[in-house]
Simulated assay, not measured.
Amino acid sequence: MTYCVAAKLNAGLVFLSDSRTNAGLDNISTFRKMIVYEKAGDRFMVLLSAGNLSISQSVREILQIEQLKDPEGGEPITIWNAKSMFDAARVLGSAIRRVHERDGDALRKADLDFNVALVLGGQIRGEAMRLFQVYSAGNFIEATDETPYFQLGESKYGKPVLDRVLTPETPLAEAAKCVLVSMDSTIKSNLSVGLPLDLVVYEADSFKTDKIVCIDHDNPYYQMMHNNWGRKLREVFDSIEDPVWDDAHTDIPIKMPAARHDMLKKISTPHEKLI
């Protein structure tokens, strides 16, 4: 399995992916799930992938050469000459459908699903940054101010911190920290996600970045974040008052709806405490 997350902020874009693939606890491998497409001064795009590894690798290869017919009769549209990120996402969708045409029947006969999911984000000169999630049918949706991030793969463990922290106004450094905490929470709870990680931070209107890093177990920032996050969570947990029974002294007693309280009175024994 895998976990990837990408966020679109006013200040830029943040992308993070793990690199673990496995077919069981005794068969774990490392494969990159992120690829960067850059033409300095003109466009900068990042692709994240999850799902069947053979499908995602095929899509990435075909994407380099995939073309769409220009409705205005110009040269075919590719990711390298697309005038918008929307058109680049269309080219990616076409690449997915091409792989499905080639391999779909064979996969079906082998009782395998055509399972792939991708996130494509970036900026092409002449328009604002955009972020898309692309599905296995080649269709896609775009990130909005209300939903400024996308996740792929094992999303449930890392989602709470994203929902609580990320907004379009979040600074890039803080957003990078947030997605790393999201990844760390996922790694803690799911053995199918693991280091090394690939992180890219892109500043709006730069069309390039020098903030690309591979994070392994020895990365000092990741180790500090991992240790502090666990410790701070425990401190916050310990600072919250324990629940108490109705007849005990507390500033914030636990209350129960009257009907529920009456029901418990009927089924309890004289020796039981009621809440």
Rank of each mutant, 00 (worst) to 15 (best):
M1Q: 05
T2F: 05
A11M: 03
G24D: 14
G24E: 10
L25R: 08
S29N: 09
F31I: 06
I35G: 02
D42P: 03
L47W: 08
L48A: 09
S49R: 15
S49N: 13
S56M: 07
S56T: 07
L63K: 00
E66G: 03
E66K: 03
E72W: 06
G73T: 08
G74S: 13
S84N: 10
A88Q: 00
L92F: 07
A106I: 11
K109A: 12
D111W: 04
D111R: 10
N115H: 11
L118D: 00
I124T: 09
E127T: 08
A128I: 14
S136R: 10
S136L: 00
G138K: 00
I141S: 13
T144D: 01
D145A: 15
T147A: 14
G153R: 01
G153V: 02
K156T: 12
L162F: 07
R164T: 05
V165M: 15
L166H: 04
E169A: 15
L172M: 06
A173T: 12
A173G: 06
A176T: 09
K177W: 09
K177H: 11
L191A: 09
S192Y: 12
V193N: 05
L195G: 04
V200H: 06
V200C: 01
Y202L: 02
A204Q: 10
K208L: 08
I215F: 03
N219P: 05
N219L: 06
H226L: 09
W229I: 10
K232D: 14
K232W: 15
V236M: 06
I240Y: 06
E241W: 00
D251G: 14
I252N: 12
P253W: 01
M256V: 15
M256S: 12
A259V: 07
R260N: 08
H261M: 14
K265P: 02
P270R: 05
I275R: 05
